[in-house]
Nucleic acid binder design. Structure first.
Ligand SMILES: [Mn+2]
Ligand SMILES: [Mn+2]
Ligand SMILES: [Zn+2]
Ligand SMILES: [Zn+2]
Lengths: 141, 141
DNA sequence: TACAAATTTTAGACTAAGTCCAATATTATA
DNA sequence: TATAATATTGGACTTAGTCTAAAATTTGTA
């Protein structure tokens, strides 16, 4: 929404503010539906044809690396992207693959010792099942 | 391990026991490293060249649908497969993509109401960070 | 403002992962 | 053993994503 805020967060992430990168970030902030790279490219490129496919992918990679965008892998489907910087969990629909946000709540850590030499960065809960749109259709079959 | 047990679990899942399907399932039961489809194909095909690439993929799909095998999506990498039927969580390494099992413990469900019309099937925790092999390398850079 | 260095963009070739097809073979059942 | 249902196959195809190297843009410094 706020152009200056986006500009600043790009710079904080060590990224230059180019029109293409800005457009990708702005699109993600305005669309909380966890779009795929292909969807982002189509939409951004339509409103400003300066942003190519390669650039869309490059920028998504950079934004994820900078920690400004989250990538969500879904079995058998294209990755989805998320600029929601509030901590939150995800619900993934078994049927249509839709990814939805669920409010954050703290995840109990594993008992001490079981992680061994691993370094833990984050714990997230993935909820799976049928989304509100798919649940009724399922019941009727 | 037990041939009869595998045979039975295939039948329980409504799947015929073919040599190829059996080999894929047996391989997954003997290898708890969450191999990719390509790894499974290579190994199974090497020990018994009757199993083609298409068949490996077909069988993995069937086994997942039947609930005998779990598919684990990892951002930017090929899917991994898992025949461990004990409930458990996963640790995914940010650096090398390795997927490791962590003992199950119960996940607190979201507060009633927040799921709305969604139908919840499962909750799993994904732990992310650096695996025991990658953690030291990371520290030294 | 002018310049140079560093970074970014680009089209399109390329790769990797996975799906689909329709002919053939195998399996389970009677 | 005969039959119907299911599974297998090689290879073409699709989809998602990466790579390349030349051209363009951004940003810091003079
Ligand atoms: Mn989200
Ligand atoms: Mn596992
Ligand atoms: Zn759905
Ligand atoms: Zn690792």
């Amino acid at each position: 929404m706020n152009a200056e805020a986006i500009k600043k967060s790009l710079q904080d992430g060590g990224l230059r503010c180019t029109p293409q990168r800005y457009a990708v970030m702005a699109f993600l902030m305005e669309h909380t539906s966890h779009p795929t790279a292909a969807e982002i490219f189509k939409a951004v490129n339509r409103s400003d044809p300066r942003c190519s496919r390669a650039t869309t992918y490059n920028n998504l990679r950079d934004l994820v690396q900078a920690g400004l965008v989250r990538e969500v892998a879904v079995e058998g489907r294209a990755a989805r992207f998320d600029a929601n910087d509030m901590p939150h969990h995800h619900f993934i629909c078994d049927r249509c693959g839709k990814v939805e946000d669920l409010d954050w709540y703290d995840v109990p850590r594993p008992a001490s010792g079981v992680l061994g030499k691993r370094v833990l960065r984050e714990c997230e809960i993935i909820f799976r099942g049928l989304c509100a749109r798919c649940a009724p259709r399922h019941a009727s079959r």
